[in-house]
Every structure is written in C-alpha cells, then in structure tokens.
C-alpha cells in the first residue's frame, strides 16, 4: 500500500464515546423494525463487517494483504456446522468455530508469514483454492453439493429465529471491535504499526515482529471463524461455492474502502458496500432487466470502488470524511 497508515486516534474521547453509544442503540433498535428481507442483509452485513475488522487489522497494522480470508470464514462455518449436524449442541459448535480457524491460522501462518507483499497475497489465495478443492471432494463434509440440514442455533434451550441471529451477529461484531481497539492501543499493536512502516527499524529496536504478526493473523482468522459459525447456523446450508475467491476479495475491498488502520473503517466499508450492492441488486432484478444484471452491477461496484479508493482515497472513507469534517472548524 502507499505509505504508512498513521494511527487514527479518537480525539475528544467523550464525543466519540457518545457517538458509539448512539450507533449502538440505533443498531440494537433496528432489527425488529426491519422486514425479513432486509433483516437478512443486516445479519450478513454485520458478519461481513466482523471479517473485515480482521482483514483491516492485518492490512493496516501488520501491513499484509490476505486474499484468502474467506478460507477462515469457511473453516469456522464448517467447524460449527459439522458437529451440530452430528448432534453436538450447537452452542458448542459455535465455540469451536473461532478455535478451529485460529488453529488453522497458526499452522498456516508459521510458514506463510515469512512471505511478504504479492507473495503472501498469492499464498493466501492458493490456500483458499486448496481448501475449496479439498472441501468439494470431502464426502464427510457434504462434498461439492454441500452440507444440508444444519440445525438452528440454540441458546439456553431457546432456538434462535431471525431476530436472534441479528443480535448474535451484533454481539460478534461488538466483540471483534472491542478486541481490535485493545490490540491497536497495546504495546504489540504499536510495535506492529512500526513494523508495517519500516521493518528494519522495528527489527532494530528488537521487537518480536514475527510473533506479533502471527498473533494478528491468528486473531483475524478467529474473527472470521466466529462470523462463519454464525453464518452456518443462520443459513442452515453450506457448500464450497458459498466461499468463492471473490468473497475474499470483497473483504479486502471493504477494508480498503472503509480505511485501513481505523476502528470504524471496516464497519463503514462493509455498510457502504453491502448497501450499495443491495440497492443495485434490487435495481438489477427489476422486470425488464437481463438476468445477468445483478452480477454485472455488483462486480462493477466492487471493482470501481476498490480502484478509486486505492488510487484517490488511499486512507479510505473514514479518514477522508474526518478530514473534510474538520476543515470548517
């Protein structure tokens, strides 16, 4: 990416805290008011934002591009769904999701994180392609056809309905954001930021960059895994086709559009993109539109937003908005 990403600190902590509280209350009050169709968008948005928090941490703080983040989303989803299909309590399955993704990340990260830049990008892409191919051949995981009949998530004997998933996804995202904020302000977080700017400088100061980088990689995988677990129970059906390479690219787009190295960036990026795609999707499925219209429009949105943001708003929407907001004062 172009240049180091400066830390985006909340100035005027009280103002920020109020803003967060308002957003939290609004998003908690929203789900019951949404029709079912929009509720699905809401749930998927929150899950995408959760994965993007991890991608943004990885790109903004560890300076690494992952084109395979959907693999961890998939690993979490399958790790949650497979035991549940065989009668294991669903909540236990959900708990397994981030653990399985994290373990996979540690095993993969040890060799892969020696790579940098485009090498790491292609390596993560390769890992996802291998995973998809293996999943498609794994009969015990449903193979290419997919895993059907995943039970719904049951918490304290209550089976979650649509609204329940909205709040579950909300909690998952809130947890990811809290963890991300604490990481950013921690000593390892500052060390990583230094490393993303200048590896030699950080190495010279004796910071254990390799370990921190693996930690962020693992943490971002765990976030994706947990979101994947909720996704599995919410949809009740999984297949390798649910996790295309394009999904990984979409997470990168959301992270870049929102702004790397900010806490609010992933949420803003995911929201802007998912709402935009949703609007275009509605437009594309109008009578009279050709049946390929929705996919053409969504490809175009992802592509154009990514290119424009990288070239003209390299720090993303959130810092850009903050700058324009500050100008009048």
């Amino acid at each position: 990416m172009s240049g180091p990403v400066p830390p985006a600190r909340g100035r005027g902590g009280t103002v920020n805290r109020w803003a967060i509280a308002v957003v939290a209350v609004l998003t908690l009050a929203l789900p019951p008011l949404l029709p079912e169709r929009h509720l699905a968008t809401f749930v998927l948005l929150l899950l995408a934002a959760t994965v993007t928090v991890g991608v943004s941490l990885l790109m903004g703080y560890a300076g690494q591009v992952s084109l395979g983040q959907a693999s961890f989303y998939a690993i979490g989803a399958y790790a949650a769904a497979l035991p549940a299909v065989h009668g294991v309590p669903s909540l236990l399955g959900l708990a397994l999701a981030p653990v399985a993704a994290a373990v996979a990340a540690v095993l993969l990260g040890a060799p892969l994180l020696r790579l940098r830049g485009h090498h790491l990008a292609f390596a993560t892409l390769a890992v996802q392609l291998i995973l998809l191919s293996l999943l498609a051949q794994a009969d015990w995981a449903g193979g290419a056809i997919g895993l059907q009949g995943i039970p719904r998530l049951t918490v304290l004997g209550v089976e979650l309905r649509d609204l329940g998933y909205a709040y579950a996804a909300w909690l998952v995202l809130a947890a990811a954001l809290l963890i991300a904020r604490n990481i950013v302000d921690s000593r390892p977080g500052r060390a990583l930021r230094a490393a993303a700017t200048s590896e030699t400088a950080a190495a010279a100061s004796g910071v254990a960059i390799g370990r921190h980088r693996l930690a962020v990689f693992t943490l971002s995988a765990a976030m994706a895994g947990l979101a994947g677990g909720v996704y599995a129970f919410y949809l009740g059906y999984l297949s390798p086709g649910s996790f295309p390479v394009l999904l990984s690219i979409e997470f990168v787009v959301m992270a870049v559009v929102g702004g790397l190295g900010t806490i609010a960036g992933p949420v803003v990026g995911a929201t802007v993109i998912i709402l935009l795609v949703q609007v275009l999707n509605t437009l594309g499925t109008q009578p009279g539109m050709p049946d390929y219209a929705p996919s053409v429009l969504s490809y175009a949105v992802y592509a154009v937003l990514l290119i424009v943001c990288v070239l003209y708003l390299p720090r993303g929407l959130v810092p850009a908005l903050r700058r324009t907001g500050r100008r009048p004062s």
């Binding site: 990416m1 172009s2 690219i249 996919s295 175009a300 992802y302 592509a303 990514l306 070239l311």
Partner: peptide, 18 residues
C-alpha cells in the same frame, strides 16, 4: 507504488468480470 498497483490490477480483474 507497486503494492498499490497490485490492488488496482485486482480491481481491474473484477471489472473484467462485469
């Protein structure tokens, strides 16, 4: 920078899909 250009080409690859 080449890193930025890589991401741009990624975007152009998706644009080609459209």
């Amino acid at each position: 920078s080449p890193g930025t250009s890589l991401i741009v080409t990624l975007g152009l690859g998706v644009l080609a899909y459209a």
